Amino acid sequence: MSLPKPVMRGLLAKRLKFHLPIAFTLSIVAAAIFKYTVTEPRKKAYADFYKNYDAMKEFNAMKEAGIFESVRPSGE
């Protein structure tokens, strides 16, 4: 008694019909999860930070700390 031959003709197409929709669905779900758990909170954090950010105040603080070599601190 021998085993029956495996059906090879059309096997790839048959498997793709099953796996391709699953792959697309999972990728869309993963992208949506990433968007709402990573990028949206990050956008909100940046917006909150720059809402009250004063660039000149930050520049003057760095200037007074001596970070810049080409800018003299006030009082010199």
Rank of each mutant, 00 (worst) to 15 (best):
M1N: 04
S2K: 06
S2E: 12
S2I: 05
S2P: 09
L3D: 14
L3T: 13
P4N: 02
P4C: 05
P6F: 10
M8K: 13
M8P: 02
R9Y: 08
R9H: 08
R9K: 12
G10E: 06
G10N: 10
L11N: 01
A13P: 00
A13S: 08
A13M: 11
K14C: 10
K14E: 14
K14Q: 15
L16V: 13
L16Y: 10
K17P: 00
K17L: 04
K17V: 00
K17Q: 05
F18C: 08
F18M: 14
F18D: 12
F18R: 15
H19A: 12
P21A: 06
P21G: 09
P21T: 12
I22G: 02
I22P: 01
I22N: 03
I22V: 15
A23N: 01
A23H: 09
F24R: 10
T25D: 11
T25N: 05
S27R: 12
I28P: 00
I28N: 11
V29N: 01
V29A: 08
A30L: 11
A30T: 06
A30C: 07
A30H: 02
A30S: 09
A30W: 05
A31S: 03
A32H: 00
A32S: 13
A32C: 09
I33S: 10
I33M: 14
F34Q: 03
F34P: 00
K35W: 15
T37A: 07
V38A: 13
T39H: 13
E40R: 14
E40C: 02
P41Y: 10
P41K: 09
P41A: 08
R42Q: 08
K43M: 10
K44M: 02
A45Q: 15
A45G: 14
Y46E: 13
Y46G: 02
D48H: 01
Y50G: 03
Y50Q: 04
Y50T: 02
Y53D: 09
Y53I: 07
A55N: 03
K57M: 07
E58M: 00
F59P: 01
F59E: 03
N60D: 11
N60E: 11
N60C: 06
A61T: 15
A61I: 15
M62F: 04
M62K: 12
K63W: 01
K63F: 05
K63V: 14
E64Q: 11
A65E: 14
A65V: 02
A65Y: 04
I67T: 08
I67K: 12
F68S: 03
E69H: 11
S70T: 11
S70K: 09
S70Y: 04
R72M: 09
R72Q: 07
R72T: 07
R72H: 03
P73E: 08
S74Y: 06
S74N: 02
G75K: 11
E76S: 14
E76N: 15
